[in-house]
Amino acid sequence: MRIAVTGSTGKLGTVVARELRSAGHEVIGLDVEGARGPGFVKLDLTDYGQVIDALGGVGDQHEGVDALVHLAAVPAPGIRTDVATFHNNITATFNVFWAAARLGIDRIVYASSETVLGLPFDTPPPYIPVDEAYPARPESTYSLVKHLEEQMAIELVRWNPQLAITALRFSNVMNPDDYAEFPDFDADATLRKWNLWGYIDARDGAQAIERALAVAGPGFQRYIIAAADTVMSRPNAELVAEVFPEVELRGELGVHDTLLSIEKARRELGYAPRHSWRDGPDPASR
């Protein structure tokens, strides 16, 4: 497919563009920053005219795309003011969704967020492992936007029955260079309790996107996307007993299994995370 990837110069977007190209797809990167060249278009996603123009075709770059991967955003709370984060992220997402629907691009995969699960869990989760079954619990302006984006997607697929929108609730994105810091987390269980000690290797994030592009049918679906394990060497039972002693446990925790359940993504998308910080350095695949 020819796939437009917004946020193609970001931490996850760079890896996603690389992996999609390696899988044989043509990628058109769209971002506010980046070097001019083949396969990249610089634009402001908060300007609808630029968005629909870029998706519809740009000079000799392309004459339209088959699918859209939307990753561009202010990527976390606290980077910009709450108002700036809200205005940027909701406007950019509306623009790319609306432009895609108008142009007949009927396959969209985009970055939602683990934050809609109730992060930083100052109010404990309703149960552990957490999954997609309970209502969103946004606790920041950033997370509120992610929740509203999911609600917007639900209505857009109702209006456009041929449209497939898949929301991937990515955990904290990591690259191999980040893994050297992980052993330090063991000293204090509360350092990473804010997302139940979760993470996602960017390469597995790319895999989840490729699987969603391949198999998602019309309609809206949401999936938690995390690594198969936690960031901790300490066992799950010890961590949960110390930090969330009153929270209901649903099923086996495993020793180091992710507490951000990826069972729905495994079952419906065929998602199978291949990378773990426990495997040690892997320079060739960075």
Rank of each mutant, 00 (worst) to 15 (best):
I3D: 04
I3Y: 06
A4P: 13
T6R: 08
T6S: 12
V15H: 05
A17F: 11
A17L: 07
A17V: 14
R21Y: 05
I28M: 10
I28A: 00
D31I: 03
E33W: 08
P38F: 06
K42A: 07
L45Y: 09
L45M: 05
L45H: 04
Y48I: 02
Q50D: 00
V58G: 00
D60W: 01
G64Q: 09
A67K: 13
V69L: 05
V69I: 09
H70T: 00
A73R: 01
A73S: 14
A73L: 06
I79W: 06
N89L: 02
A92R: 09
N95C: 02
V96N: 08
A100S: 11
R102I: 00
V109E: 04
V109R: 02
Y110R: 11
S112W: 04
S113T: 01
T115V: 05
V116P: 02
V116L: 03
L117E: 09
G118C: 03
F121A: 11
P124C: 08
P126S: 11
P126N: 09
P126F: 07
V130I: 14
V130A: 14
D131V: 12
Y134Q: 11
A136D: 10
R137P: 04
Y142C: 01
V145G: 01
H147L: 15
L148E: 14
E155P: 05
L156M: 15
V157Y: 10
Q162G: 15
I165Y: 14
I165H: 09
L168I: 06
A180P: 02
F185K: 11
N195V: 01
N195K: 04
W197M: 01
G198C: 10
I200W: 05
R211E: 09
L213C: 05
A216S: 15
G217I: 10
G217F: 13
Y223E: 00
T230F: 13
R234S: 09
N236A: 08
A237H: 15
A241N: 14
E242C: 06
V247A: 09
L249Y: 00
R250H: 07
R250Q: 11
R250S: 03
D257Q: 13
L259V: 14
S261L: 13
S261F: 00
S261E: 10
I262S: 00
I262P: 01
G270W: 10
G270T: 12
S276M: 12
W277I: 09
R278Q: 08
D282Q: 14
